[in-house]
């Protein structure tokens, strides 16, 4: 158990450490802040090294143990491998793997942390990736009001209950309980831009063009803006999009089954979605920047 905990703490140290980027300015947490459900609030798309701008919204990170694919296009098939994408992407951390490992190997803190987990201080790709994954796995969000209601510990208000019933009719096919995603890819009826074909870029299958991974709705209150490119700034924009039920022709079948929603229905649905906010999760200290650890080794960022 102690080894497991050490591994999580090593992963946490790596997650918050800009040492993973080429010039040690960008960390995973730069775009995945714990205070907003590990996304980049109020930023349409990721900001990377040298003020470079990415093309997609940083997804919220939670309940990843139940995720089969990662990234908006599902390009990554295992949580271990996920950090390689931002570390090496020119618009994100723009780093080379051998250089990352050499920097970590040269660090007294990391030599000790790796030694505590793996029995020796050797820094390898596999060890680094598995440690980050060990930390990410701990990001479980299950303490929202919705969860309390499901456990029989609380009750929805009348408005929340109406919203919940509406949710089950309109949204649950894709944003399936309890993860509030079915883990699949869909076209939710927004216009596809020519610089991003989503899932189709990965599979090479024409019919996958414009499909993006269905995001979880948990903690949606914290994770604005919305959509794969952050084009919708407010939750009310999202409600309006779905409420009008007027979608692009390539929208997935589930979208075409949706019915228009009146203003009061959209408000009810919003009230329900706010019950998915897990403040205990977003303010969980064990997920936050490890001040004490860095301080112990004299590491400053």
């Amino acid at each position: 158990m102690q080894q497991q905990e050490n591994c999580i703490q090593l992963g946490r140290a790596l997650f918050y450490d800009p040492i993973l980027s080429r010039d040690s300015t960008i960390s995973c947490a730069s775009c995945h802040s714990s205070y907003v459900a590990f996304t980049h609030v109020d930023h349409k798309v990721s900001h990377g090294i040298d003020d470079r701008i990415g093309r997609r919204n940083a997804p919220a990170l939670m309940n990843l143990a139940w995720s089969k694919t990662f990234m908006w296009d599902g390009a990554i098939n295992h949580l271990d491998m996920q950090p390689l994408a931002p570390i090496t992407h020119a618009l994100e951390m723009d780093e080379q793997l051998p250089h990352v490992l050499s920097k970590l190997q040269a660090s007294r803190m990391y030599r000790q942390l790796f030694s505590e987990v793996f029995g020796d201080s050797l820094v390898t790709t596999e060890r680094m990736l598995k440690s980050i994954a060990a930390f990410l796995i701990t990001l479980e969000s299950n303490r929202s009001k919705y969860d309390a209601v499901q456990r029989g510990e609380a009750l929805f208000s009348e408005q929340e209950e109406r919203g919940y019933q509406l949710f089950k009719q309109q949204c649950n096919a894709c944003h399936t309980e309890p993860l509030f995603t079915n883990g699949e890819f869909a076209n939710n009826g927004i216009a596809v831009h020519e610089d991003d074909f989503g899932r189709g870029e990965i599979t090479g299958i024409a019919s996958d063009t414009g499909l993006f991974k269905v995001p979880t709705l948990r903690n949606i209150y914290y994770s604005r803006p919305y959509m794969h490119d952050g084009r919708m700034a407010r939750l009310s924009d999202v409600m309006l999009h779905y409420g009008l039920a007027s979608f692009e022709t390539n929208a997935s079948a589930e979208m075409k089954r949706m019915r228009p929603m009146k203003d009061e229905q959209r408000i009810d649905l919003t009230a329900f979605l706010l019950t998915l906010s897990d403040s205990a999760f977003v303010f969980e200290k064990k997920h936050q920047y490890p001040f004490k650890l860095y301080e112990k080794f004299g590491v400053q960022h």
């Binding site: 295992h78 491998m81 390689l84 490992l101 990736l129």
Partner: peptide, 17 residues
């Protein structure tokens, strides 16, 4: 997931994206 030895992505034979 992550593997070591010749399957370590450090060898440049893994698509990170």
């Amino acid at each position: 997931g992550a593997h070591s030895g010749v399957l370590d992505p450090i060898h440049g034979m893994y698509w990170t994206w």
